[in-house]
């Protein structure tokens, strides 16, 4: 049992947050200028921004335009050669979710959303908030559906509301910046690592 990665999309179909944990096959660095700034496949806990010049060292929100730092090149291995650039991957994930959502709605004939799908090596879970934010989690194929749905709800009700929605410095509908900030990332990271299924 394990958890691979978490994507959060806003209602403009943009990926605003990404974090990965035990992901084996890393995405290649995104093409320049396609992703929102502060949404990177490198999930080192060190912020991509220059924290040394700031007084506190912790970023509450970043509205100033900092050029997105080029992601650290992952070590070259045979597994990396076939992986997609991060921006394309993020788009594909969104595309799959959107298509499956439409298909589910059509098949059931009522307002019904798609919950998850499973392949031989992973399971993708989807949770959508009323405000249109979509939480997508990649986990082990054997993870129970209800557990992850609960976790995603928890991420939304706790760190997301607390550090993103209630944060006056974050421009929620910004089309330039992700919703990244250190408090949120740390809280999510801690929450996931404390789960029983994370091991």
């Amino acid at each position: 049992m394990t958890i691979y990665s978490l994507y959060i999309y806003d209602r403009h179909c943009q990926c605003v947050f990404y974090h990965d944990w035990q992901r084996v096959k890393k995405a290649r660095p995104a093409n320049e200028g396609v992703m929102l700034s502060h949404v990177t496949p490198s999930t080192e806990m060190t912020s991509p921004r220059n924290t040394l010049t700031m007084s506190s060292g912790i970023i509450i929100a970043s509205s100033e335009s900092v050029p997105p730092t080029p992601a650290i090149a992952p070590p070259v291995s045979s597994a990396n050669l076939t992986s997609l650039p991060f921006d394309e991957e993020a788009k594909l994930v969104y595309g799959v979710i959107l298509s499956l959502r439409n298909m589910t709605k059509k098949l059931s004939g009522r307002e019904e959303t798609f919950v998850n799908y499973r392949t031989s090596t992973y399971k993708l879970h989807h949770y959508e908030t009323i405000s249109g934010y979509k939480f997508v989690m990649f986990t082990d194929p054997n993870t129970a559906t209800d557990t992850i749905r609960f976790v995603m709800r928890q991420i939304y009700t706790n760190p997301f509301i607390e550090f993103v929605v209630r944060n006056p410095l974050i421009d929620m509908d910004s089309r330039e910046n992700g919703i990244d900030n250190d408090h949120f990332r740390t809280a999510v990271d801690k929450m996931v690592k404390n789960l029983a299924i994370y091991a």
């Binding site: 992901r23 991957e89 594909l92 799908y117 392949t119 090596t121 992973y122 993708l124 990649f138």
Partner: peptide, 24 residues
Amino acid sequence: IHAITARLSPTGSSSGAEVIEGET
């Protein structure tokens, strides 16, 4: 979708989607 899901695997090669679940 089946073709894309096989490519999105976080752990190397994967099959396409085998089970897709809705709410009902």
